[in-house]
Amino acid sequence: MKVKYFAWVRERIGKSEETVEPPPEVRTVDDLIGWLAKRGETYAYAFETPKVIRAAIDHAHVRPDAMIAGAREIAFFPPMTGG
């Protein structure tokens, strides 16, 4: 699946997107965040406070407990404010 990173998540990881193949036990967005955070220092820094990270699966905003099976694209971004 393709994973995209936006705003300071992208800046901390150092890339805007990548293709990953998480193991079968990674079933939810929350699981994916935990798995990504273990991939190295930059990922750990980007996901150090997972509760503030927002996610979208195939362009639809989802909750952390959303299942990722069948997802083509998952995007991670910080909270947005309107103005």
Results as ranks from 00 to 15, higher is better:
M1N: 09
M1G: 13
M1A: 13
K2T: 11
K2F: 11
V3F: 08
V3R: 09
K4C: 12
K4H: 06
Y5V: 13
Y5K: 09
Y5S: 13
F6N: 08
F6S: 07
A7I: 06
W8M: 07
W8A: 05
W8K: 11
V9M: 12
V9G: 10
I13E: 11
G14I: 15
G14C: 13
K15T: 09
K15R: 13
S16I: 07
S16H: 02
E17N: 11
E17I: 04
E17M: 06
E18D: 14
V20I: 15
V20E: 12
V20R: 15
E21L: 15
E21W: 13
P22F: 12
P22T: 14
P23Y: 12
P23F: 14
P24T: 11
P24G: 12
P24C: 04
P24L: 10
E25I: 06
E25W: 12
V26S: 05
V26Q: 05
V26M: 09
V26N: 08
R27L: 13
T28N: 03
V29F: 08
V29R: 04
V29I: 11
V29D: 03
V29S: 03
D31C: 06
D31Y: 03
L32T: 05
G34K: 11
G34I: 05
G34D: 02
L36I: 07
A37Q: 01
A37V: 00
K38S: 09
K38L: 06
K38H: 01
K38M: 05
R39G: 08
G40L: 10
E41S: 08
E41Y: 01
T42R: 15
T42A: 15
Y43P: 07
Y43S: 06
Y43H: 10
A44H: 01
Y45K: 10
A46H: 13
A46T: 09
F47R: 05
F47W: 03
E48A: 02
E48I: 02
E48M: 00
E48W: 01
E48Q: 07
T49S: 04
T49C: 00
T49M: 03
T49P: 00
P50M: 06
P50C: 03
P50I: 05
P50G: 04
K51D: 09
K51V: 01
V52T: 04
V52K: 01
V52I: 08
V52H: 01
I53V: 10
I53P: 00
R54I: 11
R54N: 09
A55S: 15
A55N: 13
A56E: 14
I57S: 01
D58Y: 04
D58N: 11
H59N: 14
A60H: 13
H61D: 14
H61L: 15
H61A: 15
H61F: 15
V62S: 08
P64V: 09
P64S: 12
P64G: 14
P64E: 11
D65C: 06
A66G: 04
A66R: 08
M67D: 02
M67K: 08
M67V: 07
M67E: 04
I68P: 01
A69M: 02
A69C: 02
A69N: 02
A71N: 03
A71V: 03
I74V: 12
A75D: 07
F76G: 03
F77I: 00
P78M: 00
P78S: 00
P78R: 00
P79G: 00
M80S: 03
M80Q: 06
T81R: 05
T81E: 10
G82M: 04
G82F: 09
G82P: 00
G83H: 07
G83R: 03
